[in-house]
């Protein structure tokens, strides 16, 4: 694998790019420039991540605006797709083939010489840790093996730009660590990689550079810590279901980090600007007053709630 310099304008340049499926909005007025490296595309399901990735892969044509990869439209320009490797989100593939056959066919279709295609496929399969299973038919593969095979099809022709749509979905924790490591190696080898996920910690494991997409719009872009800081500026909510919610509320009411306390049917909801301190004080109050807690949860663990916060930030 060779390190390739991105084109002068950036690997991807999207300008006011929108995509509709009939009346349904996929991506709305996205302007974005990707210069290189490994970038995480973060957003909840249905946010528009796959639409954006498919436009970069040349599978969808923008309804409005433009999107160029290496300066060319990937939908219209067949040649530029030689430099793109795409692993789709879905699991459907030609299950009648073995992993080696599948990856070899994909390499040949991507322009690798027939004589070299099988060697390239074997190399890609080895990079994804699938050598032992390469002569088995895809039909019998587990989710993790399918993900690895998909990634192998994307890298077999040694493209400069890799698009992995939800590559960690449904993968067991051990395989997840391994796949993350292999994707990082690709980026270290000079590839530009875009990885989508709806799980923040998956993206954090891969890269610190993230783009947050929600309801078809790019909400935020930059270092993951900046995004976290942005998120942290919003109160964190903790819901406590207990036998004496008023006692808990009184204990925390004087603390300066508590923004709001709301009594609910079975407990109390606390909004805090310092979750760590709040959890500590909560534990102290529960122990000191002998409060029986039946449930403790944070609605903000749902990423959708965080995106709602970020949407509010932009308004």
């Amino acid at each position: 694998m060779t390190r390739t310099a991105p084109s002068a304008g950036g690997v991807v340049v999207a300008e006011n790019c929108s995509k509709w499926y009939g009346h349904v909005l996929g991506v709305s007025d996205v302007s974005w420039r990707l210069r290189g490296g490994i970038v995480g595309l973060l957003g909840p399901n249905g946010a528009g991540k796959s639409t954006l990735i498919k436009m970069m892969a040349g599978l969808l044509r923008p309804s409005r605006g433009s999107l160029a990869v290496f300066g060319k439209s990937p939908f219209d320009d067949v040649g530029v797709r030689r430099r793109i490797g795409y692993a789709p989100e879905h699991d459907k593939t030609w299950d009648e083939l073995t992993a080696l056959e599948l990856v070899t066919f994909m390499a040949r279709l991507a322009g690798v010489d027939d004589a070299k295609a099988q060697a390239a496929a074997k190399d890609a399969i080895a990079q994804m840790g699938m050598t032992d299973a390469m002569h088995r038919r895809v039909r019998g593969f587990s989710k993790g093996m399918r993900q690895r095979t998909k990634l192998a099809t994307a890298i077999a022709h040694d493209p400069d730009f890799l698009l992995f749509d939800e590559p960690l979905t449904g993968v067991d924790p051990v395989a997840r660590v391994d796949i993350v490591e292999r994707i990082r190696k690709l980026a270290a080898a000079g590839k530009t990689v875009v990885v989508s996920s709806h799980v923040l910690y998956e993206i954090e494991a891969l890269t610190s550079e993230i783009v947050v997409i929600y309801r078809g719009q790019l909400l935020a872009e930059g270092n993951v810590y900046e995004i976290r800081r942005l998120i942290d500026r919003h109160p964190h909510r903790i819901r406590i279901e207990c036998d004496r919610p008023r006692t808990v509320a009184e204990s925390l009411a004087k603390s300066d980090h508590v923004a709001r306390i709301v009594f609910e049917r079975a407990g109390v909801l606390i909004e805090t600007r310092d979750p760590d301190r709040c959890y500590d004080e909560l534990a102290t109050a529960v122990v000191e007053h002998g409060v029986h807690v039946s449930s403790l949860s944070s609605p903000d663990n749902n990423l959708g709630a965080v995106f709602e916060y970020l949407t509010g930030e932009r308004r």
Binding site: L59, V78, K92, T93, M106, A110
Partner: peptide, 13 residues
């Protein structure tokens, strides 16, 4: 089945 995504994302007319 969307297996066309494998074909159409390649440099294939």
């Amino acid at each position: 089945d969307r297996t066309t995504t494998y074909l159409w994302s390649r440099p294939v007319p």
